[in-house]
Nucleic acid binder design. Structure first.
Lengths: 339, 339
DNA sequence: TTGAAAGCGCTAACAT
DNA sequence: ATGTTAGCGCTTTCAA
């Protein structure tokens, strides 16, 4: 059996309350007693039982992070940022994978028993639709990542997707490209990053007096690398000339890049390319990949801030949901080097 | 307040024990009562309080996974596999990052309060040295990943690094290469993957009657992509000709690939290249990267099996530590295509 | 400043 | 087949 408060109390010749006070730095304890208690704590190698503490306090010190898949670089790096930020605040992170937009898994996760284990959840939804919005009402603090489920009555962190999409597109135009293709669009969707980034794309074209051509727009369901390759083949098959490509994330961009090179199309001289997310790999691809940095550490910080304010009750339940936006920046690398 | 066992018991008109039995599927409960209890559970939306359950049972249902960094693709994919495997068994995973070989962080993590929150730990050590071995004696189930701390008295999962290193090297020789360079070596180390894979390399050269040339061996501390690039520049600067390269992991390989291409050296015709780890990105690089698949799902499964056997007491404490090895396989892609 | 005691929600030993 | 009850280790009134 491991050491308990009682053991320490007995050893130090004080009451269990005093030990508790010392351990938690609460209450008034005379320097002498504190000294004695700390000595006993060290000597007995006492460590508080977190289950008991949770049971009593109603807090676990654990927050959940639900993402589609850890093997997608974007989410791995996001999780990294969240764990880092949580640690600053003495919290620990439980990661749950929803396996790329599986609605059922997402719903189960929201209602599942694991919610009891966490003080709150940071959730990046993909499969749930607007009809499921009310399922988000889980009775414990929740912060959404991204623009999905726009009508949900919860705090969320997003980024300026429209502006970022426009800036990415503009960075291609600025180096003299006039036929800018885009892959990753979800034309039928009403909401989501795809819609917003596409809006930015359209907006930038318009601002620069360029024509929006449907045959330069490729829809892609999941933003995986393999789909980037597929989309690029489709685009090439259409035969419509283009001299630049905006890929809605880096995975798509790298998949597309691979196909462009197979076809002997040079990047950036024939086709300039910009991605989105600033995933590490883009720094080492050849050519290195220009991209949009979404400000992951800031996103992690904002999400945890919002969550903690609800957990701590600083923000009462009847305060309307808030939305925080991270600041992005364009990172120009070789794939958009002016010719 | 959320619903408790008592609430359900009262609502169903039975005792709390019966409810507990039903919820946990234990004991003999008549179909009728079970029915009634389940109805109440559903109606009251009862969910067991996991803190209370843990306090009572001494189990949390959480296992820890301590890895250097989630943003390294290998570890992200490993974590993915561990979470997946854990889920099969109703366990959940708490990820802790040791930030690439920081000994202090590793030691703190082993003794830290979070151990109280987990039933056991899967640990991939990097910073701790043999002098720290006894710190692994943490009094709760522990499984090591990899060959570090060889004298530790704990279960571990490894892979056949020597054989795999030899097989990788041999795959280069098999396509006619005779001057095989290697990057990632730790020549001064006594143990670790670097030593073993290097042994395999040496062994394969010998078996094929090839000369081991010191000037074709590049040491690299951390196996990051940037270091792969650096190592390749160093190798090229030496001026010693080579027609193949064994990189000790895929990150190194991709970093090296990038430099080779900058220098106009074609892969695979000028230099054939094989990495190690079978990270996703290798499938989409250009050329796609040949590699060694370490069998991640198997590693995850073995680690959790070992851990659970200790947790459940199936394996008693005085059973000597066991070592399980995953099976690897060589994956041949474009970077080792015969000319 | 310190102590005593109740009880968080659950499991399991024991009773019926 | 079902009920009673004693804690798990901690925090937190309430007393002293």
């Amino acid at each position: 059996m491991s050491t308990t408060l009682h053991d320490v109390a007995r050893h130090a010749g004080v009451s269990i309350k005093t030990v508790s006070n010392v351990v938690n730095g609460l209450g008034r304890v005379s320097a002498a007693t504190r000294e004695r208690v700390l000595a006993s704590v060290a000597q007995l190698d006492y460590r508080p039982n977190l289950s008991a503490r949770s049971l009593r306090s109603g807090r676990t010190g654990v927050i959940g992070l639900a993402i589609p898949e850890l093997s997608l670089a974007y989410f791995a790096q996001l999780a990294d940022a969240v764990i880092e930020e949580a640690e600053q605040r003495g919290l620990v992170v439980l990661i749950e994978q929803t396996r790329g937009g599986d609605r059922t898994r997402e719903v189960e996760l929201l209602r599942g028993p694991r919610r009891q284990l966490t003080d709150g959840l940071i959730f990046s939804p993909f499969g749930m639709t607007e009809a499921d919005t009310e399922l988000l009402d889980i009775g414990s603090p929740l912060v959404l990542l991204g623009e999905r489920l726009p009508d949900a009555n919860v705090d969320r962190v997003t980024m300026r997707n429209v502006e970022a999409g426009a800036a990415a597109t503009a960075s291609l135009v600025r180096i003299g490209r006039e036929r800018v293709a885009v892959i990753g669009a979800h034309l039928d969707a009403r909401m989501g990053s795809a819609v917003l980034r596409y809006d930015g794309y359209v907006q930038a074209l318009r601002e620069h007096g360029l024509e929006l051509r449907d045959d330069l727009v490729v829809e892609v369901d999941l933003w995986h690398r393999s789909n980037g390759a597929k989309a690029m083949r489709e685009l090439l098959a259409r035969g419509e000339p283009f001299d630049a490509l905006f890929a809605m994330n880096d995975e798509l961009a790298l998949g597309a890049l691979r196909v462009l090179q197979e076809e002997g199309i040079d990047v950036p001289s024939d086709v300039a390319l910009i991605g989105f997310d600033n995933v590490d790999e883009g720094r080492f691809s050849r050519p290195s990949l220009s991209t949009v940095d979404p400000g992951r550490p800031e996103i992690a910080k904002m999400a945890i801030d919002l969550l903690l304010e609800r957990i701590d009750g600083v923000t009462s339940d009847d305060v309307a949901p808030r939305e925080l936006q991270s600041t992005f920046r364009i990172i120009e690398r070789e794939s958009t080097q002016a010719a």
